[in-house]
């Protein structure tokens, strides 16, 4: 069972340790996808939105297409990389930019849907802030250097004219759990945390008589800074091109079922948390409370293309290598 510490350590929906530098050239080889007949295993990161995948597996929604559907959590980025390359992970949840990076490097994968539209929050022991500009002069604890929380935060700060080091400081830590602990111990006033670590920090603070505030919804801030919807197409489902070719009806059924499961999770956080606790090894009350802040809203890759491209452009502006050097071609979006 994944420990709570380990869970929170990876709770950035796989953003954390999936450093772009880790996508080695060995990944450019064509994966050998397993033939899916009687059994399908869906993979997802050890994070809240994966509950939708667990629900889908339990719901029997794919019973017309697959004899047995399982959901498994990939525990480490290495597991994800290896699984995608050897073809054992033909359907897996992943950060959207990772899917784009793999696609641009020649791996036969597609993005079938966006599952979460952002789950990043600026947490504070000093109350709410009106805008991102309020971090001027502050030190912010940041998990996962050069990965999603860091990239998103720096992109927004840069856009509004804040320069790291001059206008604000980032104190990097390895995991959201470390950041959370520093806040509770009083060693940090502000931190950028993904869900469910953000909710975990609030509940831990509540338990210890410390007020940890959800100071700024970074999704809303993203909308304010870059224009458009208050949403970040943060993570979604990556599907092997081979599966899409061989069993398009299965992929279609999966996409439709995932829309229903995403709605079910958002509508039924208490029930979903029970499923999530069994799969993710985190306490159900934390999962339950984190679901409304996880912005689970499953939309197909095609539906999300405009927002994904806008997101990728911002990331590319920071470093083209993040998305594999260029915007993915249209076939990437399914």
């Amino acid at each position: 069972m994944l420990s709570r510490r380990k869970f929170l350590g990876h709770s950035a929906f796989g953003i954390g340790s999936l450093a772009v530098s880790g996508l080695s050239t060995s990944m450019l080889s064509t994966p050998a996808l397993a033939k899916i007949k009687d059994e399908l295993t869906i993979y997802g990161p050890p994070a809240g939105p994966s509950i939708a995948l667990a629900h889908l597996a339990q719901s029997g929604a794919l019973q017309d297409h697959v004899g047995k559907v399982q959901f498994k959590v990939w525990r480490t980025p290495d597991q994800l990389r290896a699984g995608v390359l050897d073809g054992s992970m033909s359907i897996t949840g992943t950060p959207t930019y990772v899917a784009a990076n793999l696609y641009n490097r020649g791996i036969n994968v597609r993005l079938s849907s966006v599952v979460t539209w952002g789950l990043l929050y600026l947490m504070s022991r000093e109350g709410k802030v009106a805008s991102l500009a309020a971090v001027r002069g502050k030190t912010i604890v940041m998990p996962y250097k050069n990965d999603m929380p860091d990239l998103v935060f720096r992109a927004m700060a840069s856009k509004i004219g804040l320069k790291q080091g001059r206008d604000y400081k980032l104190q990097y830590v390895g995991t959201p759990m470390q950041a959370m602990k520093m806040m509770i111990a009083g060693d940090a006033k502000m931190a950028v945390l993904p869900e469910p670590a953000a909710t975990g920090a609030q509940m831990q603070g509540m338990k210890n008589g410390i007020e940890v505030t959800r100071a700024l919804d970074l999704q809303k801030a993203w909308g304010s800074v870059f224009g458009g919807r208050s949403a970040i197409p943060q993570a979604g489902m990556m599907i092997s091109g081979k599966l899409l070719t061989e069993q398009p009806e299965l992929v279609s059924a999966f996409n439709n079922a995932l829309v229903e499961s995403g709605r079910w999770v958002s509508n039924n956080p208490t029930s979903a948390a029970k499923i999530g606790a069994a799969y993710l090894g985190l306490k159900a009350p934390i999962i339950e409370r984190s679901i409304p802040f996880s912005h689970i809203d499953v939309k197909s890759g095609k539906q999300s293309k405009a927002e994904l491209e806008k997101f990728f452009v911002v990331l590319k502006g920071m470093s083209p290598a993040i998305i594999g050097g260029k915007l993915p071609a249209g076939t990437f979006y399914q």
Binding site: Q70, F71, K72, V73, K274, A277, A278, Y279
Partner: peptide, 10 residues
């Protein structure tokens, strides 16, 4: 066996 009515994964 996680709880009555709640199965563990897989």
């Amino acid at each position: 066996y996680v709880d009555y009515g709640v199965m563990g994964p897989n």
